[in-house]
Each structure stands twice: as structure tokens, then as C-alpha cells.
């Protein structure tokens, strides 16, 4: 299935791009994160487990167990610092 991936703030800078589209067989956010970790050293550094990475699925804060679907929007970003 096709997924649209977005990166923000320090994670966007570390990955080197703000978004990418992927064809994936991953079913969950966790599996997709694993797939991205193996994609490049930049991805591996930005999304490393143990780092405080927040995730959203279709613009809702989600954890790694969230299920992906065709055309979904996934986002990875650091803890928020607005206000």
C-alpha cells in the first residue's frame, strides 16, 4: 500500500527531507519505522529507538501499534514545544 510520510523539526532536518511517499508492506507504525530505520544512515539516526520520537497517523497522535491503511498519512516528530 501507499503511505505518505512526513517529518518535522529536528527529525525533518536529520532525515534531510520533509516528506516522502512509500510503497510498503508494513501493517503497523512499528513495522514502518523498522523499514525506515534500514533505509539510510540519516533515517537510522533520526528515528533511532530510544530517542523521544512522537508519531501521528492521519494527524492523530498514535503509538507504534497503530494500523496503517492505503493512502494514510504518517508523521514522525520530536516532543512538541509550542505555547
Amino acid at each position: 500500500m501507499k503511505v505518505n510520510i512526513r517529518y518535522f523539526a529536528s527529525i525533518r532536518e536529520a532525515v534531510g527531507q520533509g516528506s516522502e511517499q512509500r510503497e510498503t508492506a508494513s501493517l503497523t507504525l512499528a513495522a514502518l519505522r523498522d523499514e525506515l530505520l534500514a533505509l539510510s544512515p540519516a533515517h537510522a539516526q533520526a528515528l533511532a529507538r530510544g530517542k523521544p520520537v512522537r508519531m501521528a497517523l492521519d494527524q492523530l497522535m498514535s503509538d507504534e501499534s497503530a494500523l496503517l491503511h492505503e493512502g494514510c498519512e504518517v508523521a514522525f516528530f520530536p516532543p512538541v514545544t509550542g505555547g
Binding site: 518535522f8 523539526a9 516528530f77 516532543p79 512538541v80 509550542g82 505555547g83
Partner: peptide, 13 residues
Amino acid sequence: MDYLKTQAPFWKK
């Protein structure tokens, strides 16, 4: 404000 600080997707540089 407490909610916004921890849940709204903004980042400061």
C-alpha cells in the same frame, strides 16, 4: 494551555 504545551504539534528553534 497545559494541553497545548504537550499535544499541539509546534516546535521552537
